[in-house]
Amino acid sequence: MGQLDGKAAVVTGGSSGLGAATAERLASEGATVFLTGRREAELESVVSDINAQNLDGEAIAVLCDVAQLGDLDRLYDQVRERSGRVDVVFANAGVGRTAALGEISEEDVDWMFGINLKGTVFTVQKALPLMPDGASVILCSSINASKGFAAMTIYSATKAAIRNFARTWSAELAGRRIRVNALSPGPIETVGLRRLVGGPEQWAEYNATVVASIPLGRLGQPKEVAAAVLFLASDENSFITGTELFVDGGIAQV
């Protein structure tokens, strides 16, 4: 039996990267995973790949922009119709863009705050009526919430706020025994990170400089973040709430 047999999970931001890897891992442990994303073709491809593995659970694609409340309503309508409950929420959807102080635009602020903050708030709030006592909420923060990186003002601010959501919501939901924890990845090798860094030359430079500062000497892999999400989602995490779990190779710790 899997650790999540018979449970339903929502994973946002699942078209690639951390969300896709997490959906696969949760499905392998028996969960029905409602996987969201804004890029329909990529999302459908991820779900098809997961279901082709004949895992104990399954993945269901839901086209959804978490910054649009109507999309979230449609997501939870599907969850209600197909599962009647949601035991695990991994609020993973997020975006980032570099901009030095003095060059930050209003559009930068609106875009990142809209998806990273507004999207996280309403992903969780709209799930609450479907969540049983003892459910688990995992919020995707970042080492940017703890460290200062040039040209990352707005992104880092959103991730620091998400870290605080875990503290506030764990206090608010303690009476229902709903655990809320933040997951803070470090440099993880994903399509999104490559896109943020730039072209091949920038990626090579990034690897040369960043990897040298990671105590474990390499970038992380999405499956390693997925393993941490599984721990926070499962009953193995029964006495942990309000905390922050770093999956960062030690870069924010040493």
Rank of each mutant, 00 (worst) to 15 (best):
E107T: 11
V88C: 12
N116F: 06
E24V: 00
C140S: 14
G175E: 12
I138C: 02
Q202F: 03
I240A: 14
E205T: 09
E224Q: 15
N92H: 11
I214L: 07
D77G: 06
R85W: 02
I178C: 01
L232P: 08
L26F: 11
L230C: 03
F239H: 14
A67V: 03
G94E: 02
A212N: 14
T22F: 06
D73R: 13
A8M: 05
G102T: 03
N144A: 14
S184T: 06
W169F: 03
F231Q: 01
V10W: 08
S213C: 00
L193K: 14
Y76G: 04
S16M: 13
V109W: 07
F149Q: 07
Q3W: 09
Y206F: 15
T123V: 00
G249C: 02
G175V: 04
R218D: 08
A171G: 11
Y155F: 13
R176F: 01
A61R: 01
A41K: 15
R25F: 00
V124I: 11
L216M: 13
D65K: 08
K159Q: 01
A9M: 09
A174M: 06
L130P: 01
T158R: 05
E103L: 14
A31E: 04
I162F: 02
T168C: 12
Q78L: 09
F246E: 03
I154M: 08
S83P: 03
I188R: 02
I143W: 02
V109C: 12
L69T: 04
A157R: 01
L245T: 02
S170A: 14
V229A: 13
G96A: 15
Q202I: 00
Y76W: 11
N144Y: 05
V229R: 10
I143A: 04
K118D: 05
L139N: 07
S142E: 02
N116V: 07
G199Q: 01
A20Q: 02
N144M: 10
A99C: 08
G217V: 04
T123E: 05
P215N: 03
A127G: 05
A182G: 12
T123A: 06
T22Y: 08
E81Q: 14
L232T: 05
G217E: 03
D77I: 00
G220Y: 11
L193D: 07
P132L: 08
P222R: 11
L173Y: 08
R97L: 13
S146D: 13
A8T: 13
P185S: 09
L35G: 00
G198C: 12
D56G: 07
T120R: 10
D49Y: 00
K223V: 09
